[in-house]
């Protein structure tokens, strides 16, 4: 760990004013501190935001929820409205990490979790995300946990989160505050960036910009679930996860919102896959068409090839579960 300065922010505005390229906000620290110990992250300054008044979960006028960036994962998962109206989110949260980590991890921080790519974690080897231009040993190395969608020549790492996958399915909006006092409302669909040539840039957040809230729209139509497939029963990152909200009315699918974890460099959403479902009768044909659309461009790198058939099977099983149609 590099020596760093530490300051506690009294207000979101003060926090953003102290922000900068070599500054990190720290809340739960469940990911950042590990990365600092390994010198994968080497901030010169930490701004402790844990005393900020961002701990509330409130109803919005539109019938949705406004979640403070500091709400711990455990609290959010247990919040009555989340349990009742956003089951996919509650399930995703509870599928993540361990009880201790969920008590500590914050909503804002969870959105910004860094990849668990083995090579990213080891400063003795190259990594384009950690050290731009140095290379990517994962492509022809061991890549069991790596992405099959949205990769680039420079990076095949996945986003490791569960909560953001559910939030992507829920069309969440990320509310931020910039150092100049501007507030932004960023759709989660625009929040993350594909790696392209700059895998080190993962989101559209600007220097000093602080996530203050996440807003969920009014509860979506349909049944919800989150299914996470992993290498052990708990405390493992998703190989594949599916966040799904599906409504069936009069024998037709009228709403389909699907998020995917473990597949891409960001929590994944595919409008084409959803189009294959909406307006169709739930059943094998529609489910397979959705899976085909999702995985049309999927590319494995050897040890992660299995994710493609696994994603297909998991998606179809989830659609069956939510529609009750197994034929």
């Amino acid at each position: 760990m590099k020596t760093f300065d530490y300051a506690r922010a009294d207000s979101p505005e003060a926090a953003t004013r102290e922000g900068g390229e070599k500054v990190r906000f720290i809340a739960g620290g469940t990911n950042l501190l590990d990365l600092m110990k390994l010198q994968v992250e080497t901030p010169e300054k930490l701004i402790d935001i844990t005393r900020l008044d961002l701990n509330e979960v409130e109803d919005t006028d539109e019938g949705g929820l406004r979640i403070g960036a500091l709400v711990p994962n455990a609290d959010l998962a247990a919040h009555p409205r989340v349990v009742k109206d956003y089951e996919v989110l509650s399930r995703a949260l509870l599928a993540g990490a361990s009880g201790q980590l969920r008590n500590k991890a914050s909503t804002g921080g969870n959105l910004l979790q860094r990849t668990r790519c083995y090579y990213f974690y080891d400063t003795a080897v190259a990594c384009n995300k950690r050290e731009p231009g140095s290379g990517c040993p994962a492509r022809d190395g061991f890549n069991r946990i790596h992405a099959v969608l949205g990769t680039s020549d420079k990076c095949i790492a996945t986003h490791p989160g569960d909560m953001p996958v559910a939030m992507r399915a829920l069309d969440a909006v990320i509310v931020t505050l910039k150092p100049d006092g501007d507030k932004r409302r960023i759709s989660i669909h625009d929040f993350y960036r594909l790696p392209g040539d700059t895998p080190e840039i993962e989101t559209v957040l600007e220097s000093g910009e602080l996530i203050t809230h996440v807003e969920l729209p009014a509860p979506p139509k349909g049944k919800q679930t989150y299914r996470k497939v992993r290498d052990r029963a708990s405390y493992a990152f998703a190989l594949v996860s599916v966040a799904a909200i599906v409504a069936v009315e009069d024998g037709k699918i009228t709403n389909a919102q699907l998020g995917f974890g473990g597949l891409g460099p960001m929590p994944w959403r595919d409008a084409t896959a959803e189009e294959m479902l909406v307006g169709k009768a739930p059943g094998k044909a529609a489910f397979e068409a959705a899976a085909d659309a999702l995985l049309a461009d999927a590319q494995g790198f050897g040890s992660n090839d299995f994710k493609i058939p696994l994603a297909r099977r998991t998606l179809i099983a989830v659609l069956r579960e939510l529609t009750g149609v197994t034929a």
Partner: peptide, 14 residues
């Protein structure tokens, strides 16, 4: 490659 307890998967309680 997997040199920590997050990725070297010991069985957990579950």
């Amino acid at each position: 490659v997997n040199r920590d307890l997050a990725e070297y998967h010991l069985p957990v309680n579950a």
